[in-house]
Design a protein around this nucleic acid. Sequence first.
DNA 1: GGCCCGATACTCT
DNA 2: GAGTATCGGGCCC
Length: 218
Amino acid sequence: MPRPLPRSFYARETLTVAREILGCVLVRESGGELLRGRIVEVEAYVGEEDKACHARAGRTPRTDVLYGPPGLAYVYLTYGMHYMLNAVTEPAGRPAAVLIRAVEPLDGLDRMARGRGFSNGAAKAHLLTSGPAKLCQAFGLDLRQNRSDLRGPELWIEPGAAVPDSRVAVSPRIGCETAAKPWDRMPWRFYEADSPFVTPGRALHRKTQGSQRSRHKE
DNA sequence: GGCCCGATACTCT
DNA sequence: GAGTATCGGGCCC
């Protein structure tokens, strides 16, 4: 039975929500089956001044949901092929959200593997949901879930065992290297430090487009 | 094991 | 018309 986090959980400062949503459980109901994953990595995107937040350009058809009531899903397409799941935060009128970047698979791993396109069920668990686009594939999420209520019935987030400070790490947000300073370096990515289910690698620097190799020099 | 590159379509200037 | 909150394969160590 769904026992989702209440709307009041999301109606707080985004950094608080991001920190506390670690350890909570993302649940997806689909075709009578429940897919469950423990949230181990998130990022906070906070308002129009945050130049890495989609709301930096103000209210548009796409970002409209960010300005609405907290506790709704904001799902969007990026790079023309990948979906991202966010939870809208803060009281209505303040555009902010927490990007769910990775979960630890708990239930429905076979179904997740199929969603990811793995034909054999022997896929390694850490390949299923260790990234924002991967977890959307595994959970079968796309634009149809945009604006859906995170209190169910098709998608919700349940309370879980809190992750202690000693196991939480912080870093700049991934993929925001080109955002204006200081927003490119804000330490607003929270993740479980010792989890094998977070985004692998780390420096996703890429930025030179067209220039070969590197020219180093500043 | 790490780095580089292309794919692909939608959003806003 | 440009830029994008990524992923996975290919290549080179």
